[in-house]
Design a protein around this nucleic acid. Sequence first.
DNA 1: CGTTCCACCTGCCAGC
DNA 2: TGCTGGCAGGTGGAAC
Length: 272
Amino acid sequence: MPELPEVETIKRGLVQRLARKPRITAIELKCGDLRRPVREEELGALVGQRLTAVTRRAKYLVFVTEKFNLVNHLGMTGSWRFEKGGGHLKHDHFVMTLSDKTKLIYNDPRRFGLLRLVETGSDEHAAVWGRLGPEPLERDFDSGYLWKQTRGCRSSIKAWLMDQRRVVGVGNIYASEALFQAGIRPRRQAGRIKQAECKSLVTAVRRVLNSAIDSGGSTIRDYRNATGSEGGFQNLLSVYGRGGDPCRHCKNRIASNVLAGRSTFWCPRCQK
DNA sequence: CGTTCCACCTGCCAGC
DNA sequence: TGCTGGCAGGTGGAAC
């Protein structure tokens, strides 16, 4: 489900709702059978901790407390919501009861998500982040970086964009969108992207992600932010999910096929 | 090493 | 109506 704009939107909603920095008074792990198994004893250390911040790195959310970072990846279908009463839904896996009497609940039908508790400053931290690339909306992701990092690279530029070791946060929707904005076909070999194209691609990635954040993300199927609202960027998509439809720019039919195992969309006339 | 393929899971929708 | 197959916003490990 979520790429950078969706995770960022969820983060902002959580930050707003947790502004009073509540304490975690109880936790309940209903199902720890996520991508990596979690045990209740691991998450139990959160009880008594104060939620001081929520941050985002790549597509990960981080719930910060005095002693811990609860690292969360939403996989394809993860979501967080607040409940006042005892509301309980299918696929609720983890519940944090807060000192303001609300419950913060993690729901994830496909269970591709990640919940992992890491002590602040521990070595484990580096292991969680692995070898994540730069944030696309920060300074170190620029055309010089893109140029250098694509030299000698034989994979497609779309696969490159979606490789989180190269740059984080770009997934299947926004890779197609950014390449459309930059006028570059998804199948182009990354190592053959020209310098000028690197420049327009960096601009396109930034612009697409920022616009999507402004719209609160894209709700294609079931994405909701932390307060239950849908995003709006699905209405502004240029190519993703629009195979066979007319290009908004040139009216040519949007093409689609599978690239590196993922559905891919582009305009054969606007993109070279 | 770089790259591709597939499994991991449930839900939903189109087509029969 | 009900079944089946295909597909879904991500990731990491196996295989080449």
